[in-house]
Amino acid sequence: MLLQQLINGLTVGCVYAVIALGYTMVYGILEFINFAHGEIYMLGAYFGIIFLALFTSSGLAASNFPLAFALTVLLTILFCSAYGFTIEKIAYRPLRKAPRLSPLISAIGISIFLQNYVMITQGATDKVFPQKFGDASFNFLGASATSLQLIIIFASGLMMLGLHLFIRKTRTGKAMRATAQDMTMASLVGINVDRIISVTFIIGAGLAAAAGVMVAAYYGLVNYSIGYVAGIKAFTAAVLGGIGNIPGAMLGGVVLGLIESLGSAYVSAEYKDVYAFIILLIILLIKPSGLLGTSVEEKV
């Protein structure tokens, strides 16, 4: 029972973590909460349904489902990254030098726009994500994990590892860290800060998109409003780990998923969505910098 809850919690937690990365990366550089980020996740779920439907009608999903699903995820990431890039360019970049509240309001506007845009074009009712992963599950120690759960955990882990390596080892990744630490100085060493910010939004949106497809496949139902709750929870995960801190967002997501799952199993399932907000309150009261939110002491 406990192990089962841990598996379920880890699955959801990995998804929160992947979405939380987008919040925390953008916050790290622009010190701004991109409240439209949850909507990218929602768009990801819808694009997932659309592309999978295309592959189903073309016959690929029937002959080779894993390939069709992988292509669906890739195309979804591509499309949502384009959304992320465009949103930054038209809704946030013009407000770069404006008071801090302005981009925040712009983000809320984008969020409302995207929800309504999807509601109008896709309808207000739930859409069904075709369940083709089957019931194959793997048993160990009395608990079972479905193949989809394992895929989600594995793919999330891979994405987080990939991001970690990208940020640590590549030139662009290092430039992202430099930009987060001192944007003006980054431009003075020759870093094209606008390009780095675009890359940040593209990566963040791509991760949220992947999370969107995976969750859509996991829960099976998609609605234009799912971005809101997922967004708030991923935001909580980012704050829990220390906003702006990338390993923190990963840890925060997993911890949040586990707490939700254990809380639902052992306390009450009715309060499932409340745990996240209780945690947010506790963290803000006790350790506002988050679990990993301590920085190297800086000499002036």
């Binding site: 290092k174 860290r177 630490q181 001192d182 003006t184 980054a186």
Partner: peptide
Amino acid sequence: EGRRIFPRL
């Protein structure tokens, strides 16, 4: 002014 090295790099 103030050197502005990237402290966590």
